[in-house]
Design a protein around this nucleic acid. Structure first.
Lengths: 342, 342
DNA sequence: ATGAAAGCGCTAACAA
DNA sequence: TTGTTAGCGCTTTCAT
């Protein structure tokens, strides 16, 4: 690999001059020299050594994307369509901004911070952070960071958050179902009580309360999405749902899996029961009947996350510290008035 | 950020000694010193500067994952479930091996090589490479690399390839459909003629030829998966398929989108037409009727890719240069005997 | 068992 | 306009 020094020697110039040309500080260098240097750079196929550069300056041009997995959810996090679309969008934007992206997936906050510091990353985009992580992050990572979908009240406060109007989404969907004539509406989630899910649940609670519908503990049905327990869990849920005319699932993924189970048992959607999801992923759009859901613009979330972190790197103060992207109700075929049941 | 030098100064030691402790060369250092150093490292929260290390040594501990996009397919590549599952698996394995992963997505080979060299990556995992990229890669990237799903005959030869028995998959699925009693079987693909798709097509051709079925150009139907043309394309295809009792789609994604279109037109699967896919993604498993497909173990592909590249980095010679993982036929509800049509 | 010193490739302050 | 030099944090060779 050819270095600046070699180029300089060949041209009988100093490394400074070569470096200046590389960095386009052409006013410091005579046009003739610029041309000569550029030619040599090109001919020799010079490629900067970014490790060295990041050592010499105090920035690395790396932005880390850290996906904090839940310890239980051991598997392949990125296969979640939400995560993968977000990752793709973030990667693209980071590249467009002239930065490099390093991807970490870990269930240990310390690990994440450690690697980020090791590579001297300029900034960090964080997903899946929860309360306890906040303080550790705050103390040990002193550079800009933005969170995605963070609800923690504690330490993470220092970081800008890019979130979603989750509560509002839960509320609107539930209102929509009520508008359709449903009174017995179940809420399906896994047992992990992630803040995002809780917010959606809150919206659901608000809507039914507003409609004068009583909430009973058993209206919240819990689903075990993990391979081993999935089938059994679905069987149980299909039973529980006999008392309901609609079910609002915390994610499209769960909604689609539920619809599969209902189909397999001859329970018709939406005739026997209406099913609604959240996120608007390909999964729900591809299913038939297509899934009624709450749409969020994941691409936009990614774009915004990068935009904010780049802003922070440039020293701009963010206008908002807790950004909430809007949601949109998307009615499709999986929901209908309960009347049809007869 | 605390450095080795600072630790050394505090302990009245040389940087050499501290470095030796960090690298576990305890035989060079007295037990007492080892203890003192470790304590200080810990107390100060020392984190190595990997940029500096990679400058001093000739390795970076970074493995690049480069996804070469097709110039047409501008969008978010990683949202393809195949890509995202693979990415996730690769990331996990790279991390487990004590390496770091840098992700590039680009439609320009030069870009990819440039960045890889800039960061001094120890090795590269390449996806989506095609013939023309081979030579450029070969000339300009002199380190170990492995390709995933590469079929090019030219330059990329130097690199180990992790592929799939695509032809065999196409063959087995088609045989299966023939076994069910189908004689009029269409093959659906997009117009891009990727090598992987062509191999699957070859398998299809082999199977029908073997069964004495004539192939006509129009049996190969082409689908435009891009947003703008999708609906129109599906409408046309649904018409074309009237003459067939089965359709074998080159991917689960396309199969599921097709099934949606068929459903919307009241054409029943599998009663009116059998539909088969390839890949076995969540999409096909979640659909109803569930999609009959050719399963490939994407996780395994990722694991293997990392295993091979790590082997190469250790100087091992790979036993095989063109590894082909096996496929498995997964019959599900979307296919049936054509008799049912009556 | 420990240390001094050079050098990896680059940038930047300062001189000329 | 160009060059000299020091230094970023770390590893490594060679002394001691």
């Amino acid at each position: 690999m050819v270095t600046i020094k070699e180029i300089a020697k060949e041209l009988h110039l100093s490394t400074t001059t070569v470096s200046n040309v590389i960095h386009g500080k052409s006013w410091e260098v005579s046009p003739a020299t610029v041309r000569r240097v550029k030619e040599a750079l090109d001919r020799k196929g010079y490629v900067p050594n970014l490790g060295a550069r990041s050592l010499a300056q105090k920035e690395s041009k790396i932005i880390g994307l850290a996906l904090k997995a839940q310890p239980d959810k051991a598997g392949n996090l990125i296969q979640d369509p939400f995560i993968s679309v977000l990752t793709g969008a973030i990667e693209r934007e980071i590249r467009n901004e002239g930065y490099y992206m390093m991807l970490y997936v870990s269930d240990k906050t310390e690990e994440i911070v450690r690697q980020a510091r090791s590579w001297n990353v300029d900034g960090l985009i964080l997903m899946g952070m929860v309360d306890d992580d906040g303080e550790w992050m705050d103390e040990h990572f002193k550079r800009p960071a933005v969170c995605v979908d963070n609800y923690s009240k504690e330490g993470l406060r220092r970081f800008v958050n890019i979130g979603l109007a989750d509560e509002e989404g839960g509320y609107q969907m539930t209102r929509y179902l009520i508008g359709l004539g449903h009174r017995r509406i179940a809420f399906l989630s896994d047992g992990r009580y992630l803040p995002v899910d809780l917010a959606r649940f809150d919206g659901y609670r608000r809507a039914i309360a507003e409609a004068g519908i009583d909430f009973h503990e058993e209206d919240s049905v819990v689903y075990s999405p993990f391979e081993e327990e999935r089938e059994q869990s679905l069987a149980k849920i299909c039973g529980q749902l006999r008392h309901y005319t609609a079910v609002f699932c915390v994610s499209d993924l769960y909604a689609v899996q539920l619809m599969g189970a209902l189909y397999d048992r001859g329970i018709r959607v939406p005739e026997d029961i209406s099913v609604a999801g959240f996120d608007d992923t390909l999964l729900g759009r591809s299913h038939r009947p297509a899934l009624t859901t709450v749409r969020q613009d994941v691409e936009e979330k990614g774009v915004l996350a990068v935009k904010v972190i780049i802003g922070l790197l440039k020293g701009e103060e963010p206008k908002e510290r807790d950004i909430r992207l809007p949601i949109h109700l998307v009615p499709r075929g999986s929901t209908a008035s309960p009347g049809k049941k007869l």
